[in-house]
Design a protein around this nucleic acid. Structure first.
Length: 478
RNA sequence: GCUGAUAUAGUGUAGAGGCCAAUCAUGCCGGCCUUUCACGCCGGCGACUCGGGUUCAAAUCCCGAUAUCAGCACCA
């Protein structure tokens, strides 16, 4: 694993960092970068890692997502030292909001958003900006008392209305929302993230923040609040946009798809959620390694499944058991073949894991693709056979000795197979994002349920479910 | 439109003026090993966006162009 660049201004006691998702859905690949990068530095320097759940938009909070988030961070193996919920901290935000109003740093604005935008774009103050502190405070109290309807009023921070960057001009720090919050009974006034984030970062002692570059303007906006309070700003690092192909990430698209039955749930393998990736046999450690390899650069990048798979293979290949799985199987009788029992190592890298036995007596299943256009094959751990294709798509096989040397001499392909004997095999459905394959696998795969195995010459797969009738496996990668 | 950021092989990444005819990983190709087309080992392929400038010397600094991205929400 490569070493990431050192952070600036790391103190004696290490760092305090945070991972701050909002509970609008489960964690996905996009979150993983922030989560693991921050995690990396907390491990590197020591300190605290705060999981902060940013549930300050009641419309985007779904109660069931809280647990989803916690479960995901646990699966990811994040070194979280404490968890805070912003919904528990509204009194703190109100207190600081009031202070800003008292010091004349914020004002209550009753302009509708379009007219404010017009003024803002023209670098012109809105009439509310010069309201007296007393009036602002009175209106603030009325806001908290629920006397204002949603959209009729907002609290803005006084920045610089003529700032060259329009994003900096008197942005909003509190708003009124009429929707109920699942965790707050009577809240009407909600802090905007720039306010709540600054207050929390300061109070929680956050020293370093790694976040996406979509927050780069927020970092500059937040600087105004830090300055008003006389607080010191953390060190920030903004990584570039990461586009992720082949998978659905948008929360609304996922929700709609699940509701309409296009996806089976949050762990549908067409989604980019942690749950879906876990289901596909990817270890959290592999995601972590892939994310650390990507690092904190500001360049926009294309997420590489290839690299993730390589990271995963590095972890699982040495330890995972091997089995045969024949997809699209064709049944073949082998003429003149003796009855023999094949012994195949569970893991050729580790003989101490033992082997599995497959008893051949007359007929086997093979992958037709392996028998096509060849005159001889070596059935791995079994024997050689001469092959001839029949007009009807079947194959005629004839025993041709068990000498491995002969097979090599003939350059025979060494292929996987299964005995055509129901007591030794089980139906296997191998599922992948681009389609399913059906076939058989060794019966002993049943006891690997929940684990990742290697189907020899097919690829790595996670055994999703298994009983005496059927194994369902999800393809991970080659 | 305004503000800001970034531009190194297919992908990711190192490189913060001379050690760079550019690192590592992954990928691809070839070979070895091997009763898996896995793993391992060896070899190979493949990149500094373009144009100016500064300098004895630039992938590295400056300017411009181009491209991409982000922000300009009473979301986070």
């Amino acid at each position: 694993m490569r070493e990431l660049r050192a952070l600036k201004n790391v103190g004696e006691s290490g760092v305090v960092m945070r991972f701050a998702p909002n509970p609008s859905g489960p964690l996905h690949l996009g979150h993983a970068r922030a989560a693991y990068l921050n995690d990396y530095y907390v491990r590197k320097y020591g300190g605290r890692y705060v999981l902060r759940i940013e549930d300050t938009d009641p419309r985007r909070v779904e109660p069931e997502n809280y647990q989803l988030l916690i479960d995901d961070t646990k699966w990811m193996g994040l070194n979280i030292t404490e968890t805070v919920y912003q919904s528990d901290r509204f009194p703190i935000y109100y207190e600081h909001g009031r202070k800003l109003i008292e010091m004349g740093a914020a004002y209550v604005c009753t302009c509708d958003s379009e007219s404010f935008k017009k003024l803002k774009d023209a670098k012109e103050e809105c009439p509310c900006r010069n309201r007296s502190v007393e009036d602002n405070l009175a209106m603030w109290e009325d806001m908290l008392a629920g006397k204002y309807a949603e959209g009729s009023v907002t609290v803005r921070l006084k920045t610089d209305i003529a700032h060259p960057d329009p994003a900096m001009r008197d942005f909003s720090i509190f708003r009124v929302v009429d929707s109920p919050h699942p965790k707050l009974k009577d809240a009407k006034v909600y802090p905007m993230m720039n306010l709540s984030v600054v207050v929390d970062d300061h109070l929680l002692g956050i020293t370093h923040v790694i976040r996406g570059k979509d927050h780069i303007a927020n970092t500059k906006r937040q600087e105004y609040i830090y300055n008003y309070f006389g607080w010191k700003q953390p060190e920030y690092y903004h990584y570039g946009r990461m586009s992720i192909g082949d998978v659905v990430l948008s929360t609304t698209a996922m929700k709609n798809g699940i509701r309409e039955g296009t996806y089976t749930g949050w762990d549908d393998i067409h989604l980019g959620t942690m749950k879906a990736i876990a289901r596909r046999g990817i270890l959290p450690e592999a995601i972590k390694n892939a994310m650390i390899d990507i690092g904190v650069g500001q360049t926009d990048i294309q997420f590489s499944w290839e690299n993730l798979f390589a990271a995963n293979k590095e972890l699982i290949d040495p330890v995972v058991n091997r089995y045969f799985c024949v997809t699209d199987p064709v049944k073949c009788v082998v003429k003149n073949a003796p009855t023999v029992t094949a012994k195949a190592l569970l893991n050729p890298n580790d003989e101490s894991k033992g082997y599995r036995e497959l008893k051949f007596s007359g007929a086997l299943y093979a992958d037709p693709a392996d028998l096509k256009d060849v005159t001889m094959v070596r059935f791995k751990d079994l024997f050689n056979a001469k092959v001839s294709a029949n007009a009807d798509g079947t194959f005629s096989l004839e025993y041709s000795g068990e000498s491995l040397e002969d097979a090599r001499k003939e350059k025979a392909r060494i292929v996987h197979w299964l005995p055509a004997d129901d007591s030794q095999i089980v139906k296997c459905l191998l599922r992948a994002p681009d389609g399913d394959k059906e076939g058989f696998c060794e019966r002993s795969v049943i006891k690997e349920s929940g684990k990742v195995v290697q189907f020899e010459r097919v690829g790595f797969a996670r055994i999703d479910s298994a009983d005496n009738e059927k194994v369902v496996a999800y393809f991970a990668h080659h």
